[in-house]
């Protein structure tokens, strides 16, 4: 009885332990390079969460990087031209991205399946062309510089220029918030409907579900999260410009989601994003020219052994441990 209760609460305990670990981690390990990788991994977490949300509504977007760009440019413009404070610029980046996604979504989400994918691919390319050539707003390749924010909370003043630590805590907070949101949605009635729209669109339509409505909802929500990530990223790099948002990033989001595990709304993308950003950066530093080959082979091997992603380990690992103990059990226990 007690044991069963404990077992049921185990994931929650593990999750809390993990969150506490992420919070105290940079205080113990004072490696600034690692910190910078983790911050970028956090941005990629938000990006992958957005991608997964769209994917779970049955659509496969190849242009998610465009929403990163919209959020990034909106955040940068709000901060540098309108002089909005940090938090409001983040929100503004997310909202403008969501508005663009809503307006585009009600038009392009009518296209099913791969037509939608290619349309988003084309939109992503168009977004980069616009960013490069709309000089009066985006300043072309010059881009827009964003000053590091100085946040005042009561007596406390945090200058983001001197330390990157605040960025870390903010991105951890943002990831937790986004994860909670998508987790709640996944557990709610909305989540069930969205899944049915994805898995059986025709049946859902016969059951009276308005497909477009749910697709647009998920597309807009995902774009909001991606836009916030874009605005945050621009603050972190203190600059925004077209080279930041190449179309290849959208496929990287797909790789992250599949490696982490597509069938979990939250943990899969987060795990995948952290693993891919960490090892991707490490490989770039240490392998140089060999990186593409090793990266590609590793992805294929991972998918080969764990087609359902790393989240599968939570079932496989206990089974593996159990099998270890069983083998040991055959040998009579030595007296202590």
């Amino acid at each position: 009885m007690d044991k069963a209760k404990l077992k049921a609460k185990l994931p929650l305990i593990l999750l809390l332990a993990f969150i506490i670990f992420t919070i105290i981690f940079p205080l113990i390990v004072k490696d600034r390079f690692l910190l910078s990788i983790l911050i970028e991994a956090g941005v990629m977490c938000l990006f992958a969460l957005g991608f997964a949300a769209v994917f779970r509504s049955g659509q496969f977007s190849l242009g998610q990087a465009a929403f990163l760009a919209v959020g990034g440019y909106a955040g940068a413009l709000l901060a540098s031209k309108a002089g909005l404070p940090f938090w409001l610029s983040l929100l503004g980046g997310g909202l403008s991205s969501a508005i663009v996604a809503f307006l585009l979504g009600i038009v392009i989400l009518r296209m099913g399946g791969l037509y939608f994918s290619i349309a988003t691919l084309a939109l992503g390319e168009i977004a980069i062309i616009i960013a490069k050539n709309w000089d009066s707003v985006t300043s072309g390749m010059t881009g827009i510089a964003v000053d590091a924010p100085i946040v005042k909370i009561g007596e406390l003043t945090i200058n983001f220029a001197t330390t990157k630590l605040p960025y870390y805590y903010i991105i951890v907070l943002l990831v937790i918030m986004a994860a909670l949101m998508f987790w709640r949605i996944d557990r709610s009635r909305l989540g069930t409907v969205v899944r049915s729209v994805a898995v059986a669109p025709v049946m859902s339509e016969h059951a009276g579900i308005h497909l477009m409505k749910y697709r647009v909802i998920m597309f807009t929500l995902a774009a909001f999260v991606t836009g916030v990530a874009g605005a945050f990223y621009v603050y972190y790099l203190s600059w925004v410009g077209p080279p930041l948002f190449s179309g290849a990033q959208s496929t990287v989001a797909l790789i992250m989601c599949v490696i982490g595990g597509l069938w979990s709304a939250v943990s899969g993308p987060i795990i995948g994003a952290i693993i891919v950003s960490y090892f991707g950066t490490m490989m770039q530093i240490h392998l140089e020219g060999l990186r593409p080959l090793v990266f590609g082979v590793l992805v294929i091997v991972l998918i080969w052994f764990m087609p359902n992603g790393l989240v599968e380990l939570q079932y496989r690992f206990p089974a593996w441990v159990k099998s270890l103990f069983k083998k040991k059990g055959k040998v009579p226990d030595a007296p202590a």
Binding site: I37, L237, L244
Partner: peptide
């Protein structure tokens, strides 16, 4: 740009170089 920024971080944080020279990429601002 992201990769160039990561490269700069390893050079500065890990190798502790006092200068980065001969850069001709597009990532100046990062």
């Amino acid at each position: 740009v992201q990769a160039d920024a990561a490269a700069a971080r390893t050079l500065i944080y890990d190798k502790q170089v006092s200068a980065i020279v001969s850069y001709f990429g597009v990532g100046y601002s990062a």
